[in-house]
Design a binder for these strands. Structure first.
Lengths: 160, 160
DNA sequence: TGAATATATGTAGTTAACTACGTAGTTTTA
DNA sequence: TAAAACTACGTAGTTAACTACATATATTCA
């Protein structure tokens, strides 16, 4: 992938995605090597419920930064493997309240030492001159102030 | 997305992907605002052909770091909108040689000033304390030396 | 030189996110 | 207090990458 590396910042979206994919694939391998039946894509939901215990579908979606349909399909999977369960909110019939099952809580306890190993491996990987995690946070912050599109408009004085 | 931001490095794959998506979406808007009919996902192929002029399917796939089936589907789209064309390699009948059409070359000339604006906007966005592009390159380099999985094995002394 | 292996391309099906749209409750307001 | 607007959830269909498999041509080697 010479050309993409050399094209510099224009291909940054491609490179971000590729890096994300690679890390996620390694995540799968690490869980598997530890005998844990868990997919990295479930992490945001499970971790959120670990911290907040009972949340509605949309609350989870907001916490993890996904759309609610994406969240619903994750929740369906997690319900199927019995890591979470849900019940109607009695005070607001529109809402479905989600929480971990005992099995889900046990799995989290099993995963905690694996998470520690992952944190260590990731910290090692990203402890370079320019820290990736900090760089992401900084760029997210910059984008909150003014998106790439807004910046391009300003720079290029677009009519639109 | 409070929880994900707070969960730190464990959710780094999720955050990388989200950032990539946002940048790509803004890319679409910027092309559109400049009256250019171009999708950011086409960039790697088009930019590669711009630099190398004639390549086979697999050569392009390697340059852009995608699998060849993904590359084939991009090439199909690009052929449909007549930005590229292909012909059989006479010395090796297995190969299909791909190149830009005149329309493709014209479009590149049209896009160049837009690319400059994008480069400026992205440079502005990522010129923070920890430079995102450099951080990516550094992590890619680290992963080439030893993947996250290998590091986790070493750290956790896994049996597998 | 023919059999085995390797390479190039292609197809089918999967995945994990998305957008667009619909419905049912809840809240606000005229 | 009925209509309008909003909120929560769900479904259907799309997208952009992937893996697995199939086939045709080229190369290597016994």
């Amino acid at each position: 992938m010479n050309v993409i590396d050399e094209s510099g910042i224009l291909a940054i979206a491609t490179r971000l995605q590729r890096l994300s994919d690679q890390l996620r694939k390694d995540g799968v391998l690490i869980y598997k090597a530890n005998g844990i039946d868990f997919e990295p894509k479930w992490f945001p939901v499970i971790y959120t419920l670990h911290l907040r215990s009972v949340l509605s579908v949309v609350e989870i979606a907001n916490e993890i930064g996904y759309t609610h349909p994406s969240t619903i399909s994750l929740l369906k999977e997690l319900e199927k493997v019995k890591l979470i369960r849900s019940k109607k909110d009695k005070t607001d019939e529109r809402k479905r309240l989600i929480q971990l099952t005992p099995k889900g809580q046990e799995l989290i306890e099993q995963m905690k030492p694996v998470w520690d190993v992952m944190i260590a491996a990731l910290t090692e990987l990203t402890a370079t001159q320019n820290n990736l995690l900090l760089a992401i946070a900084e760029v997210e912050e910059q984008m909150k102030r003014l998106s790439m599109f807004e910046r391009a408009k300003r720079i290029g004085r677009l009519t639109n």
